[in-house]
Simulated assay, not measured.
Amino acid sequence: MLKTILSVSGKPGLYRLLSQGKNTLIVESLQTKQRIPILPKDRVVSLGDISMFTDTEDIALSEVLKRVHEKQNGTAFPDEVLKDNETLRTLFAEILPSYDRERVYTSDIKKLFTWYNILSGAGITNFEEEATADN
C-alpha cells in the first residue's frame, strides 16, 4: 500500500500515485483529492522506500506506522503534540525505543506523526508491505 503513497518535495501533504506517463506522474492529494501532474524535476519519494534509523538496524516505515497505529488506537495526534519537541521525542521513544537519537531529528518525528494523521484521515490504516501479504 505504501509504495503508491508519495511525498513530493516542496508540496505539502501526501499523494496517491494514479498513473505514470513518459515524463510525468499523475497524483491525487490524500487531503484535498486534487489531481496534479508531477514533473521529472520534482523530487518524489515513495513511503514504501523510507526507513527509520535505530541503534541496531533500520526499520521500515510500514513497521513504524503499524506501531504508531497500535499506540494511538487508530486516532490522530492532537496539534498540541506536534508543536512540542520534547513531547514528540518522548512519545516516539515509547513507540520505537531503539531509535537512533543522534540521526533521527525532531523534524523527522514530526513529519512521521503528520504523515500518520494524513494517512489515517484518508482511511489508510493497513500499513503492511505487499511482500508480507503472500504468507
Rank of each mutant, 00 (worst) to 15 (best):
K3V: 03
K3S: 01
K3N: 08
T4P: 00
I5Q: 05
I5N: 06
L6W: 09
L6S: 10
S7Q: 13
V8K: 06
S9D: 06
L14C: 08
L14H: 02
Y15R: 10
Y15F: 15
R16A: 12
R16N: 05
L17N: 04
L17H: 12
L18K: 09
L18P: 00
S19T: 11
Q20R: 14
Q20T: 11
Q20C: 12
G21N: 08
K22I: 03
K22T: 14
K22D: 13
N23G: 05
N23C: 01
N23F: 05
T24S: 08
T24H: 08
L25V: 15
I26E: 15
I26R: 07
I26M: 15
I26K: 10
V27Q: 07
V27P: 01
E28I: 10
E28P: 01
E28N: 02
S29C: 13
S29I: 11
L30Y: 03
L30A: 00
T32K: 08
K33T: 15
Q34E: 15
Q34L: 11
Q34P: 01
Q34I: 06
I36Q: 15
I36W: 13
I36G: 02
P37Q: 05
I38L: 14
I38S: 15
I38G: 13
I38W: 15
P40R: 00
K41I: 15
D42E: 14
R43P: 00
V44D: 12
S46D: 07
L47Y: 14
L47T: 10
L47C: 12
G48E: 12
G48H: 12
G48V: 07
D49T: 12
D49A: 15
I50K: 06
I50Y: 02
I50E: 02
I50Q: 06
S51G: 01
S51K: 02
S51F: 10
S51E: 06
M52I: 12
M52G: 00
F53C: 08
T54M: 06
T54A: 09
D55F: 07
D55K: 11
E57F: 09
E57Q: 14
E57R: 07
E57G: 07
D58P: 09
D58C: 08
I59Q: 07
I59D: 12
A60P: 11
A60G: 01
L61G: 01
S62Y: 04
S62V: 09
S62P: 09
S62G: 15
S62K: 04
V64I: 14
L65F: 12
K66W: 06
K66C: 11
R67G: 03
R67M: 04
V68L: 03
H69E: 10
H69I: 08
E70N: 09
E70T: 07
K71C: 02
K71H: 14
Q72N: 11
G74S: 00
T75R: 04
P78R: 00
D79R: 06
E80T: 14
E80A: 09
E80V: 13
V81Y: 03
V81M: 12
V81I: 11
L82E: 15
K83R: 14
N85L: 03
T87I: 12
T87L: 13
L88P: 03
L88E: 07
R89E: 13
R89D: 07
T90M: 04
L91C: 00
L91M: 09
F92P: 00
F92N: 01
F92M: 05
A93H: 05
A93T: 04
E94G: 09
I95V: 03
L96F: 11
S98P: 04
S98H: 04
Y99A: 13
D100E: 09
R103A: 11
R103G: 05
V104L: 13
